[in-house]
Write a protein that binds this DNA or RNA. Structure first.
Lengths: 227, 227
DNA sequence: GAGTGGTCTAGACCACCTC
DNA sequence: AGGTGGTCTAGACCACTCT
């Protein structure tokens, strides 16, 4: 009858009602298992989930405490641009604005862990939603780790080609706000200096950097979570 | 010998090497358990973790597939401002700029699910890092759900007081980029229209809205995911 | 209908950390 | 040194959903 989600809900209720105040110790897994009449593993599942969400803090021997600072973690969905546009019920299209091979700017090279003389491919792509500028994508690709016949990136979106043809990868993401540079302003059709929401993502294989991409979102963009 | 993290690592390796390509089915839990010589629950733990990370997609009967679109989810740390400042090795301080009681603007009221005539407390606080403007906090509080003796918010940070005195809550968070309004520009000491990273957070108890807070970060702020 | 993941149990051992 | 959470096992039943 009592699943781990029921137990999580009950624990959360007691925390909200301040039965178990912030910073306070809560009973051990064994005690809770006895109280709810379930196996300890079930309690463990519930408490582990709350700990991953930042609601509880757990340490061996020290026990489990209610976190002093709640909502410390949030999970974001990072959608692919095409999906994001289509989820709004708009039509997605894109135009390749530039394709250049050469040495990347120093900050890009260093962020990718490459020497300053490394040759890379730079793609600048404007993504449109119902024909209106949505995102300006500026991407550096490391050709050394890409499979041989590169496609025509004017026809195929770099992101989707990478997903389909390059070994699975990890990476990191950063968000910031920046004033539109001259070039960005022109591409997005906004005033120079307009506030843009910027996403920067670095992607790696186990060995080497694959790509660094900077997405400058047109004004009005919001990134949202539900906790 | 083989813990669930080892199994997760091995599964991830096979995905990266394209042993198991994107969109492809991988063996069942039972098969993997037999192959690795562990219990099915251990395999389940590893695969569930990868599914939560967005690497795998699982459905009963349909089996487990490698996600077509990797890195779909990212986890963010949403730190308390004081912690964030101190983590940089800077000193945190704040100044209460305004404290007004009255009806909130319509967008705020609607976002909190309150009628337009509701009375709320508005606090405007400037947070400083080593004496320099770091974040302008604009907060609406719902006094109807706050415990009786409100503190002097010029002395106590509203956020930290809420954490310590109000029932635990959930909420949602949104990020955007906005040009600095006149008042914001003056408070933060930047030019009007400068690109600001804005965090907006709504917090609820089970029944009612507690607070809505808008944080306008000084230029240069970056929000980064954990790897 | 049947195969797959989701969960639960009862017991066990271990790693870690505070006391 | 002992208590606590972390994990594993072997087996079982259930929920979902594809065929």
């Amino acid at each position: 009858m009592a699943g781990w989600e029921d137990i999580r809900a009950e624990v959360l209720r007691r925390i909200r009602v301040r039965d178990w105040p912030p910073g306070g110790l809560i009973p051990t897994e064994e005690d809770l298992a006895a109280e709810f009449g379930v196996a300890r593993a079930t309690v463990n599942r519930a408490l582990r989930d709350l700990a991953e969400a930042g609601v509880l803090e757990r340490r061996r021997k020290a026990g489990t405490r209610v976190a002093l600072l709640p909502v410390r973690k949030a999970t974001l969905d990072i959608p692919v641009i095409r999906q994001e546009v289509e989820a709004r019920g708009q039509a997605h299209s894109f135009r390749l604005l530039e394709r250049v091979e050469g040495a990347p700017p120093v900050p890009v090279a260093s962020r990718l862990g490459l020497g300053p003389g490394a040759r890379m491919i730079w793609l600048e792509t404007l993504h449109l939603a119902d024909g209106r500028p949505f995102v300006l994508e500026s991407r550096w690709l490391n050709p050394a780790v890409l499979p041989a016949p590169l496609p025509d990136f004017a026809q195929v979106s770099a992101n989707e080609w990478l997903v389909a043809h390059v070994a699975y990868a990890t990476g990191d993401i950063a968000f910031s706000a920046e004033g539109a540079a001259t070039r960005e302003a022109a591409a997005l059709g906004v005033a120079e200096g307009a506030a843009l929401f910027v996403t920067e993502r670095t992607t790696w294989t186990a060995e080497a950097a694959i790509t660094f991409v900077r997405l400058a979102h047109a004004p009005g963009y919001r990134l949202q979570t539900m906790v």
